[in-house]
């Protein structure tokens, strides 16, 4: 591969549709854009020493944003990264799930199909908000099942002052063209038949919706309890869809809960933080594996509960979205 000398590897690879993970735009702050340098690349930079262990550095692991292209540089790119591509799409449907969450259904145009594993995410490009600003790529878990290869559905919650979500909420319309890239991510079901505990809050619902439809289509029958938390009734969504799945699938149990129901919600379901509800409802879960998606605070609290219930740490899989 020929790239411009001196260009950061992260950017050089991206121009050739090889997308290393990055959450800081190549500033050496997130430590995500790891790859193995086989030859060349110079000594590790201070930013790399903050993110990489001595063992990783000794093994040749580097941050793609800190390594500059030079003659003879050789790097190892994991094959899974080569599966990520750019996509042109068209918005087929936008619907309100709650007062601040939208579901965006995108039909893929070029290429017109995607292969992904439930739990993976794509990045959506928001155009620049003004002439002198830049566009932004933001990550969203895919909420649709992988069998529907021609579409991706994204669950997008409004972030105050957010570049991408503000565009989605204020400007994006059905029929408009959009750009995506992906799929990315390691969050996925382990290949076992252990009972499962799923736990999510807010837009952390997305991977579990994809998983549920995928398992249903496969005819799987792994016992699964899905704890889904929201603050008040106005923040809950997909209730009918998941309750209907619960009626059809004997192995699936859906437990929505509200942490702070509003007056007038007439909520008869579980109340409390979703981690408290899981604590009350789960007995010995030592045989289970657990999948968590939500804020860092939610995931951390859930991991403590699950450990108390006997789930070993190596069987707790999670996706922290902040």
């Amino acid at each position: 591969m020929q790239v411009e000398r001196g260009q950061p590897l992260l950017a050089a690879l991206r121009e050739r549709d090889v997308f290393l993970a990055s959450a800081c735009g190549g500033r050496g702050l997130c430590g995500l854009c790891r790859l193995k340098v086989l030859h060349g690349g110079g000594p590790p930079q201070p930013a790399e020493r903050r993110h990489l262990s001595a063992e990783e550095i000794a093994a040749g692991v580097r941050l793609g944003c800190q390594v500059r292209a030079e003659a003879g540089l050789a790097v190892e790119i994991p094959p899974k990264l080569l599966a990520s591509r750019r996509y042109q799409g068209a918005v087929e449907r936008i619907r309100d799930l709650t007062h601040d969450i939208k579901e965006v259904r995108i039909r893929l145009v070029e290429p017109d199909a995607i292969d992904f594993v439930p739990g993976q995410y794509v990045q959506l490009e928001a155009p620049p908000p003004s002439d002198d600003a830049e566009g932004a790529w933001r990550a969203y878990s895919i909420a649709s099942p992988p069998a529907d290869r021609e579409h991706v559905e994204l669950i997008i919650r409004l972030v105050p002052g957010g570049l991408c979500t503000t565009w989605v909420f204020r400007r994006l319309r059905e029929g408009e063209a959009v750009r995506l890239r992906g799929p990315f991510g390691e969050f996925r079901l382990a290949d076992t038949d252990r009972p499962m505990v799923w736990l999510a809050g807010g837009s952390g619902m997305a991977p579990f919706r994809s998983l549920l439809h995928h398992l249903r289509k496969k005819g799987a029958a792994r016992p699964c309890t899905f704890f889904f938390g929201a603050v008040a009734l106005r923040d809950l969504f997909y209730l009918e869809e998941f309750h209907a799945a619960e009626r059809r699938l004997p192995w699936f149990c859906f437990v929505p809960a509200l942490s702070d129901p509003a007056e007038g919600d007439r909520w008869e379901g579980e109340t409390g933080l979703i981690t408290e509800v899981a604590d009350r409802r789960l007995r010995d879960a030592g045989d289970a594996e657990a999948y968590l998606c939500g804020s860092a605070a939610l995931v951390n609290a859930a991991r403590k509960v699950l450990r108390r219930k006997g789930v070993p740490p190596e069987r707790i899989y999670y996706d922290k979205y902040n």
Binding site: R27, R157, S295
Partner: peptide
């Protein structure tokens, strides 16, 4: 009261990455 949000934001002084949400 926390209103959680997805993603992280870079400090404009370029010395850290912080959870979104308020």
């Amino acid at each position: 009261t926390c209103r959680e949000a997805m993603g992280r934001i870079v400090c404009p002084f370029d010395d850290g990455l912080f959870p979104k949400g308020e």
